[in-house]
Design a protein around this nucleic acid. Structure first.
Lengths: 339, 339
DNA sequence: GTGAAAGCGCTAACAG
DNA sequence: CTGTTAGCGCTTTCAC
């Protein structure tokens, strides 16, 4: 900055003023111009560390990602977050911790972030589940995306979740609307939060349609393709084969695709299949393309950035972001349609 | 730090000495102990920004990820990188740029990183392809993981690539070794680097086996599941159906699975299929489990951290990291085996 | 062994 | 409108 000042023939303070575009300090247009030029020819860039040190605020937000590596689409959360952060000239620093990280591991991660001056941290997961948050002592602004503190503590300034119940209701309504009455629900683990919400959504849709809850058979899977395969094979081999499968996620739907084909069933002609997640490079690439529910990861990430960079909300916010069903080719009216 | 000094009844400098564990400055064990205790009860943490500002070196390394969001397993690169960085008490700051980012976009990304004091940046991609690097003017140490500068400039201190040729050779040898003589290669785009290397590997394996290069039919896909489906359907429907398919990646192999089933072919009984990438949650989840080639993303990331945190190598290093074939269930000897 | 003081690159009073 | 200066939290030289 001194070099720029010298080159422009002004004081270093003046350089700071024009570079930070401070409108309250008047600077002669000509001077201003000289400074800008000097800065540009010298390829000057302000050192954020020094700047932050001085102003006492941070221009970077940290994210603790609880197992990106294990989840293909965590990228979207990051993307939304980053885009929004960038718009507010903030940077994003991420540190990935294992899905099975202990509280101590996470404490280290958060500490590393805080030591480097992040002004806020967002915990992000792709699975909508409890995560370890470590012992951070409320030292930093925090938000949660698709996860919440495993230890039951308060979820910082914001708890941002996909509206899985609504999504579950929406796909169910879609399939019901097509005329299906014999449906199987191939869900995630029985204790999984998302699975439960989605199933409740299903129940709501059933209620709305005036159908008994036990008209849909339900199974527990593990969100893996193989479990989708196994469950689908089992239900499809029995008598009174369902005409539609509501899968816990796209991976399980893929398993169902494989199982259906192995049994000589055509999708969607003989069997409709719906997924959940709208996983990139999967749902829209399948043959036939998979009807599914889009998870609003990008929006969730963006919202987190928005909240944490702005003024702290008077009280913690909890938001459920809508999950839209995206209808593609794998769902159609049931065969032998009788209405 | 002043608070700690006061609490321990020593000067602030002494606190710095013991906290940084400087063995060249002798400190009385008792004093040392008092400082440590004070620091811990006050929950003191050193501000890396101030520290870096003073010492003039950085303890964080930046990564420009060229399209994480679009590639499911970029996470592994990050993971390896982070693990290695952590071992050397560095942090990792990532910024994701779009796959189609312009040089200007990338310049901004790198600048954001450098302004925040990263000591080095690694460009990472999941696709092994040229990437924009922006105009960074050699201002910072740089390495490339699974990518290289699109503008033909020198690849910084290190160019780290998967050995796709070796991987291609290895799968081909595996399938050839099983006895297959009628093979089709369903590759990625004709101009794609990885596709070409993998195909060269195939040629080498053919040469080693004393087989003519034209004994394997080759097709161009786009690494998407649908293109795998389309290509497989085409080649499988024709006369002299191949007994084995070498796919450009796991996604295409999945397409081939789907196509094979649609034609009533059993894998691997009627048809062997091999993928490439060993994509998490895909390859090992398919039914049957997919034989494929593992990409060493984790190792690549780790190596980048190792190089950039250590002393600069005297001259740029280029390393090819081995891709191992992982044999699972989708490959077996051909039907009507005649040897 | 320990402490005082300078300075890393920056911002923000305040004086001119 | 511009320049001087103190100080953000730290490290390190040098004197005690």
């Amino acid at each position: 900055m001194n070099d720029v000042a010298r080159a422009a023939g002004v004081s270093q303070a003046t350089v700071s003023f024009v570079l930070n575009d401070r409108r309250d300090i008047p600077v002669a247009p000509a001077t201003r111009q000289r400074v800008l030029e000097a800065a540009s020819t010298l390829r000057y860039r302000t050192d954020r560390r020094a700047q932050e040190l001085r102003i006492g605020r941070s221009t970077t937000i940290g994210v603790v990602s609880h197992g990106v590596a294990s989840h293909p689409f965590a990228g979207s959360i990051l993307r939304g977050l980053q885009r929004e952060a960038l718009r507010r000239s903030h940077a994003v620093m991420v540190i990935d911790v294992d899905v099975e990280a202990t509280a101590a591991d996470v404490t280290d991660a958060v500490a590393g972030l805080v030591d480097r001056g992040v002004g806020a941290v967002v915990h992000a997961s792709a699975g909508t589940r409890p995560v370890q948050i470590g012992d951070v002592d409320g030292a930093v602004r925090t938000a949660f995306v698709a996860c919440w503190p495993a230890d039951g503590s308060a979820p910082g300034e914001a708890l941002l979740l996909p509206d899985d119940r609504g999504g579950g209701r929406a796909v169910a309504a879609h399939v019901l609307g097509l005329g299906h009455r014999s449906i199987a629900f191939l869900g995630g683990p029985a204790r999984d939060h998302a699975r439960r919400e989605r199933e409740r959504g299903l129940d709501e849709a059933l209620g709305l349609a005036g159908l008994p809850l036990d008209s849909v058979r339900r199974f527990d899977g593990d969100y893996g393709t193989r479990s989708g395969y196994r469950l689908a094979a089992r239900v499809l081999e029995g008598d009174d084969r369902p005409s539609a499968l509501l899968c816990g996620n796209d991976q399980m739907a893929l398993g169902a695709y494989l199982a259906a084909r192995d049994l000589g069933l055509r999708v969607p002609h003989d069997l409709s299949i719906a997924g959940y997640d709208d996983q990139e490079a999967l749902a829209n690439q399948l043959v036939p393309e998979l009807s599914t529910v889009a998870l609003p990861h990008d929006a969730l990430g963006a919202r987190a950035a928005e909240i944490l960079i702005g003024d702290p909300p008077p009280e913690p916010v909890t938001e459920f972001v809508e999950c839209e069903v995206v209808v593609r080719e794998s769902t159609s009216p049931p065969p032998l349609n009788t209405y």
